[in-house]
């Protein structure tokens, strides 16, 4: 496990998303106004690129493709249409630098080679 530099906090304006390359791992940094989150670069629904499809308002990240949404402050799923949780990396800010704990790349069930039947339903 190692803390990996993502970008400076000042590079991600409030209510925006930034795609960064963290030593070969593509990570989205989200500034939801009162904090930051680091996550895989795709929507857990149908792999939409969240840096293009995502929009943040009132701490809620919404993917505009099918309106799946998550509260970035609590990481709760927001609204009935959202069927899978968002995965995030542990994140810390040091001297204006954002660092994530990137042990291995986070992926969603549909990307895992060993997914079983339960994973297909997003409950694995």
């Amino acid at each position: 496990m190692s803390w990996t530099y993502l970008c400076d906090a000042s590079e991600v304006a409030p209510n925006t998303l930034k795609l960064v390359d963290a030593k070969g791992v593509r990570i989205i940094v989200a500034n939801y106004g009162s904090g930051f989150r680091a996550m895989p670069p795709i929507c857990p629904h149908m792999e939409e690129p969240l840096d293009e499809s995502g929009v943040i308002a009132n701490c809620v990240l919404t993917c505009t493709k099918h309106l799946w949404a998550w509260n970035l402050a609590t990481l709760e799923m927001d609204g009935a249409e959202t069927e899978k949780p968002l995965k995030t990396y542990d994140l810390k800010e040091e001297d204006g630098r954002l660092l994530a704990l990137v042990d291995q790349e986070l992926t969603y069930d549909f990307d895992e080679e060993d997914d079983d039947d339960d994973d297909f339903f997003g409950k694995g």
Partner: peptide
């Protein structure tokens, strides 16, 4: 997509 974005914001 642009319209949905405008509405959510």
């Amino acid at each position: 997509d642009g319209a949905i974005r405008s509405l959510i914001i």
